[in-house]
Write a protein that binds this DNA or RNA. Structure first.
Length: 786
DNA sequence: CAGTGAGCGAGCTTCCGCTTGACTT
């Protein structure tokens, strides 16, 4: 039996450390926190110094029992959770729950997972830092108070099942404000002038005017003037420029680069990184540190020296600058830098490659560039034409890695071979005009946020942690505050005026503007909730709120303040405001917009957020007749819908006529427009409008649906009518007594015998008896909904 | 899956951070 029990947070880490420590030590994992406030209960005793009530979640009970058993039989228990606020709390909860005695308990921390670092940690144990634990309790309790007091206000004032919190509400605010900027944006036109000139040796010089014109007349005037003007090289400036590599990856920068370079979503990046971590290819993927261990720097240096040469090496130490960083881990890097590639899925290979390159580049020499700027005068004018060129003198880190631009417009960095050269020129030299083009341009509306851009912004504000960026993004989508989608954009025409061979000509071109894919777009609900929260709870929605409370948590961690005093001070003001706002009589007025009067009935028409989302209301509640309601369609918004569009929504259901002796009806349901015929439903695809669809089109859709229904059944058995082999979203499956069973991959669905099917059903039934509580719970929930 | 929402009623919803599984109707 092992004399020592070491407890760390992550099982992958436990496995590695076990190898270093040998059989005298048993290394186990706590899988993160083992205790928390009850999930569905406030669990804070406000009248008793805000005492938290902690419970062990059901799915942690078995694990805690195992840890208890192991700790009882060990002489010394080493609490080796991470060296940050949450890690300290995990150690404290473990000590409490496992009932550890101080004399045989040691708290240790290490900064890298290497044998010497761990042995050194064991040589230097300390006690649990109660102040740091208290700072964590303050954080936990504050978040619970904010979340569980604010959310019910939204249920009452806006609609049920909404949520608010210190992190998610600010995330939505960022998106909502950007959307507002876009709505208020007024595009302005201007004219940009570009030109191509020739040197005496026919060298091509492409340049741009250093002034933009606001009117067409000004642009045409310059072109007219240029017909007979002389162009002279007025000045040449050559400047050396150096570029330095970006620091190694943190969670946030990895998410950003994987999004830009590989098109991964934030959640996808984390899933793939997790699997790279578990198979031992990379260090821990949830980190805010840019630090590399000394051992890692050594091996990276060797790698650079041996593969690229000593002149490409420059050892660098990076320091984390982001607010609230806790640096319990290293930066994200390959565990073995000599592995240039790894096996695995295509996604794993790509992400590993990105991490490898970024890590190597971070220890490489600066790139040396030479930038040239040539000013060309136009006689009789004060404006200049400017040509610029760039030459790479030494590529340095650019040899392996180029960080992409943040503007995320599909533009990539120019370095890496794409630089342009200028022909040799001298000051005073004359140049000949090849052409000059004035292009009409429009100022661009601000970009919407992508997931990764939102993460970047949150990190800058010190809001949220590496472990929560991805979950936060899915929460605000689950609450329907935000949808990830594309805004199609609009076609806009612009003109181009060209001077060539002494003649000026004009032609019209067109471009697509505001076209964005995969961006986060706030919904009506998101906008209304944000308006409400920023108006009534400005303190919580303040971009600096987290930074402020963090500095107070720091005071607690340093022992300068008691955590419950801090919370009391916050709670008093906050709770009073909750009561005040709850008492306001503004039921359902939040976000309401009156559109006008229905021409047909003379009744008022308004839009607002209803129980099930945005709706339009016809008539008022004071009227003798009850008001009528209709949901807005997916592409409609409370903010932009017109009276005409709103009134049209009441034209449903439409009767199209008869088909096979039954009525064909068109209506718009919870899941969009549909056709109802003979008790069956058929969805209407996006390219057809429910308002204009014809009986003929509808019957075609019905036929199509019937055909796909027919394909749904792969096989039936006369002996067992309740058992069917069906074609579903994820391929073939067996349906038996309303339950579904998956068919093993190696079996061919078409040729299954009844016996084989029965065996699969029996197998599955046995398997689910033993464990898989989650599955049955999920089923029960789904059934209860009906 | 498939209008339901404007009253007198039940009970439900919700936070942020730490960590993986077992699931893919």
């Amino acid at each position: 039996m092992a004399e020592n029990l070491v407890i760390v947070e992550s099982p992958a880490k436990a496995k590695t450390i076990q190898k270093f420590l040998g059989k005298d030590y048993k290394v186990m994992s706590s899988y993160g926190h083992i205790r928390d406030l009850e999930k569905k209960d406030f669990s804070i005793d406000v009248n008793n110094d805000f005492e938290p009530v902690y419970v062990i979640p059901e799915d942690k009970e078995a694990l805690v029992e195992e840890l208890k058993k192991a700790s009882k039989s060990a002489k010394t228990v080493w609490l080796a959770s991470d060296e940050d606020r949450e890690g300290e709390a995990i150690a404290w909860h473990l000590a409490q729950v496992l009932d550890l005695k101080k004399e045989n308990t040691r708290r240790i921390v290490f900064h890298e997972i290497t044998k010497p670092a761990i042995l050194e940690a064991i040589e230097n144990p300390r006690d649990i830092d109660e102040n740091l634990v208290d700072a964590q309790q303050a954080r936990r309790v504050l978040d619970r108070i904010v979340g569980f007091e604010l959310s019910p206000v939204l249920w009452k004032k806006i609609k049920p099942a909404l949520s608010a919190g210190r992190v998610q509400s600010v995330a939505v605010r960022l998106l909502a404000e950007r959307e507002q900027e876009i709505r208020n944006f007024k595009s302005e036109q201007y004219y940009r002038v570009g030109s191509e000139l020739l040197t005496a040796d026919s060298g091509n010089v492409s340049c741009e005017l250093n002034k933009r014109y606001s009117s067409r007349e000004q642009a045409v005037e310059l072109l007219e003037h240029s017909k007979s003007a002389t162009f002279t090289v007025a000045d040449i400036q050559v400047k050396p420029v150096k570029k330095s590599p970006a620091p190694p990856f943190t969670t946030s920068t990895l998410q950003q680069e994987a999004s830009r370079k590989l098109g991964f979503s934030v959640a996808q990046t984390m899933r793939v990184a997790q699997s790279l971590y578990e198979s031992g290819h990379i260090t821990y993927m949830r980190t805010d540190s840019v630090n590399l261990s000394s051992l890692a720097i050594g091996t990276i240096s060797n790698e650079i020296k041996s593969t690229l040469g000593e002149n490409y090496l420059k050892v660098r130490k990076y320091h984390t600058s982001s607010k609230g960083a806790q640096e319990a881990h290293e930066a994200i890097r390959p565990t073995f830098i000599s592995n240039h590639d790894i096996g695995g899925t295509a996604q794993e290979k790509k992400l590993y490659n990105l991490i490898w390159k970024r890590t190597i580049a971070s220890q490489m020499a600066d790139a040396q560039l030479e930038k040239t700027q040539v000013d060309i005068s136009i006689d009789g004018r004060s404006e200049m034409l400017v040509a610029s060129g760039e030459v790479v003198k030494f590529d340095g880190f650019l040899k392996v890695y180029i960080e992409t631009d943040d503007d995320d417009n599909g533009t990539t960095a120019t370095a890496g071979g794409d630089f342009h050269m200028l022909p040799p020129m001298k000051v005073g030299e004359k140049l000949w005009l090849k052409n000059m083009v004035a292009t009409q341009r429009f100022t661009q509306q601000p970009n919407r946020y992508s997931e990764a851009m939102l993460v970047k912004r949150l990190e800058e504000l010190g809001i949220g942690r590496p472990s929560t960026y991805a979950p936060t993004i899915s929460t605000i989508q689950a609450r329907d505050y935000v949808v990830k989608g594309e805004s199609k954009g609009v076609k806009r025409s612009f003109e181009q005026i060209t001077l060539k061979d002494g003649k000026i000509s004009t032609r019209s071109k067109s471009e697509l503007v505001g076209n964005e894919k995969g961006k986060l777009i706030p919904t009506d609900v998101g906008m209304v909730v944000n308006d409400f929260l920023t108006e009534y709870f400005p303190q919580i929605l303040d971009y600096n709120f987290t930074a402020k409370v963090e500095s107070e948590f720091d005071d607690i961690a340093e022992g300068k303040r008691k955590w419950n005093d801090e919370i009391k001070e916050f709670y008093n003001g906050f709770h009073q405001n909750i009561e005040k706002v709850s008492a306001l009589r503004l039921e359902h007025k939040v976000g309401e917009r009156v559109l006008g009067t229905d021409p047909a009935t003379g009744k008022p028409v308004s839009v607002k957020i209803g129980r099930y989302g945005p709706l339009v209301q016809l008539g008022s509640t004071d009227d003798v007749d009850k008001p009528r309601f209709a949901s807005l369609q997916k592409d409609q918004s409370v903010a932009t819908i017109t009276l005409e569009e709103a009134v049209k929504l009441f034209d449903m259901p439409r009767h199209l006529g008869d088909f096979e002796g039954s009525d064909v009806q068109v209506a718009i349901g919870r899941f969009g427009p549909y056709i109802k015929h003979d008790g069956k439903f058929v969805s209407i695809p996006k390219d057809l409008s429910p308002y204009s669809i014809t009986l003929e089109e509808a019957t075609q859709l019905i036929a199509l649906k019937r055909a796909s229904e027919a394909k749904k059944v792969i096989k039936t058995f006369d002996e067992e009518p309740e058992l069917q082999v069906l074609n579903g979203r994820f391929g073939a499956y067996i349906s038996y007594k309303k339950q579904n069973f998956k068919i093993p991959k190696k079996m061919d669905a078409e040729n299954l015998t009844l016996e084989q099917c029965r065996a699969i059903v029996a197998d599955e039934a046995n398997a689910s008896k033993g464990g898989s509580r989650k599955r049955t719970a999920g089923r029960r929930k789904a059934a209860a909904k009906k």
